[in-house]
Write a protein that binds this DNA or RNA. Sequence first.
DNA 1: ACGTTGACCTATA
DNA 2: GTATAGGCCAACG
Length: 114
Amino acid sequence: MSDFYEKVFEVVRQIPVGRVTSYGAIARYLGSAQSSRMVGWAMNLSHHQEKFVPAHRVVNRNGLLTGKIHFGSPNEMQELLENEGIAVENDCVTDFEKLFWDPMKELDLEQFER
DNA sequence: ACGTTGACCTATA
DNA sequence: GTATAGGCCAACG
């Protein structure tokens, strides 16, 4: 497994409950700013990972649940999000800007504080 | 081996 | 404000 995917999974697991992030944010955090597609592909592999990866907390820049079809059922992603307290309407995360969790900001800030 | 596709993003027009 | 174009890299047929 490449380090890239491993890092992606690690970052995704660090997403707090009730928060969401975008593929681009993760890609930028990993240094591959314009390779956001690879992040999505990594999510595809996340199903094979023994450790559970909350891929449902990762949406596109628009807050749209584009990847829901890759889950078992299209409703599964929305159900999981709503179960964590994230309101989803019409396959879009409501108050996406509020719930947005930027790893580049949050993680770097945590590391900086330490 | 080559062409197409894809859980995306940014930039022009 | 929507529309189109380009770029990125890996997987699939």
